[in-house]
C-alpha cells in the first residue's frame, strides 16, 4: 500500500455548512483522512447525515472542504476533475430533457471530446451496460434500474480511471440492486477502475467492496475500515457464504450505535452538497 501512489488521498478533511450559531450550521465531517488504493472498490457506509456523501463531493472537487486537502493521482483537487474521475449520482441526475444517447454524449461535449469520437464512445458505453437498444429513449421512459445503467454508461464514456458513486442504487428495489451490483462487480474485474461507492445497505457494501469505511454519526469521521477479501467478479453465492454473514454482522455491530446516535439528533443537513439555490425542505408538511 505504501509503495504505490494512492488513487485518491484525503488528508485531514473537515467540512461544515453555515457558521456556528446559525440555524443551518452543521458540522458534517470532522478531520477525516483516507487513502483510496488504485483498482479497489471502497464503500463508504454510515448513518444518515454522517457526511459520507459530502466526502464524495469533496473528493470529486464539487466543492472545497472547510479544512484539509484532497489529491487525485497526486494532483491537488481544486475543482471538478472530469478527466480523472466521473460521478454516478442517485436516480435524478440524468437530464430528463435529453435522450439516453444525448445524455451520454453531453458529458463528452462538456469535456471537448472530438465530435467524431463521441458517437463511438457512447456506443461502447451503452453496450457495456446493455442499453444500446434504448439509446433513443428518454429517462422518463425507462425503469429506475435502466436509468442507473444509463447514468453508469455516461460515467464510463468519460473513460476516467476513477468512478465516484453516490448511492447509485439507493432508489431501486432490492432485486434490481442485487443484479446491478453483480454487473458492477463484473465490470470492476474487467476494467481495473477505482471506485468509491456510498451506500446505506450493509449487504451491498459487503457484496461489492474490497474495503468498507464505516462512518460515525455526525460530525462524521471514519470509525473503522473493514477488508472484504474476496475476488471480483463476485457471484450471488457469495451472499450465502458464512464469510459474507460474518462481515455483515460485524458491520452492523459497528453501525448500530451510530445509527441510534444519528436518529436522536433533531436536525438534518439541508443540502447534501453545500449546493446553491434555495434550501430544499425535505419531507412533506401536513
Amino acid at each position: 500500500m505504501a509503495s504505490a501512489q494512492p488513487a485518491i488521498r484525503v488528508n485531514g478533511v473537515s467540512h461544515q455548512f453555515g457558521e456556528p450559531g446559525e440555524a443551518r450550521y452543521v458540522q458534517a465531517l470532522l478531520d477525516t483522512s483516507l487513502d483510496v488504493t488504485r483498482g479497489e472498490l471502497l464503500c463508504l457506509i454510515g448513518p444518515s447525515g454522517c457526511g459520507k456523501s459530502t466526502l464524495l463531493g469533496i473528493m470529486g472537487g464539487l466543492f472545497a472542504p472547510t479544512t484539509g486537502a484532497v489529491a487525485v493521482a497526486g494532483k491537488p483537487v481544486r475543482g471538478p476533475m472530469p478527466r480523472d474521475l466521473a460521478f454516478v449520482f442517485q436516480e435524478s441526475a440524468l437530464f430528463p430533457w435529453n435522450t439516453v444517447r444525448e445524455n451520454v454524449m453531453l458529458g463528452m461535449t462538456f469535456q471537448g471530446v472530438a465530435k467524431a469520437e463521441r458517437g463511438a464512445r457512447a456506443r461502447r458505453a451503452l453496450e457495456a451496460v446493455g442499453l444500446i437498444d434504448f439509446a433513443e429513449h428518454y429517462p422518463g421512459q425507462l425503469s429506475g434500474g435502466m436509468r442507473q445503467r444509463a447514468a453508469l454508461a455516461r460515467a464510463l464514456s468519460l473513460e476516467t480511471d476513477i468512478l465516484l458513486m453516490d448511492e447509485p442504487f439507493g432508489a431501486l428495489d432490492e432485486q434490481t440492486r442485487m443484479v446491478l451490483g453483480e454487473d458492477l462487480s463484473v465490470l470492476l474485474s474487467r476494467s481495473n477502475k477505482t471506485i468509491v461507492f456510498v451506500t446505506h445497505s450493509l449487504g451491498e457494501a459487503v457484496f461489492l467492496a474490497d474495503r468498507v469505511a464505516v462512518f460515525s454519526a455526525r460530525p462524521g469521521t471514519i470509525k473503522q475500515i473493514i477488508v472484504v477479501d474476496e475476488p471480483h467478479p463476485r457471484k450471488p453465492s457469495f451472499m450465502t457464504a458464512p464469510k459474507f454473514h460474518a462481515l455483515r454482522d460485524q458491520l452492523y455491530g459497528l453501525l448500530h450505535d451510530e445509527i441510534r446516535k444519528a436518529m436522536s439528533e433533531t436536525t438534518q443537513p439541508r443540502r447534501r452538497y453545500g449546493q446553491t439555490g434555495p434550501a430544499e425542505t425535505d419531507g412533506e408538511r401536513v
Binding site: P80, P82, F87, F89, S92, A93, L106, Q111, Y273, G277
Partner: peptide, 25 residues
C-alpha cells in the same frame, strides 16, 4: 430557478463550463 442541484453537480463533475450550464441545463 428551481433546478435540482444534482443536475448542476453532475454537469460540473463532467467538466461543464458556465456557458454549458446555461445552454445544456
Amino acid at each position: 430557478q428551481k433546478i435540482e442541484p444534482v443536475y448542476f453537480d453532475s454537469a460540473r463533475s463532467m467538466g461543464a463550463s458556465r456557458w454549458h450550464l446555461l445552454r445544456y441545463v
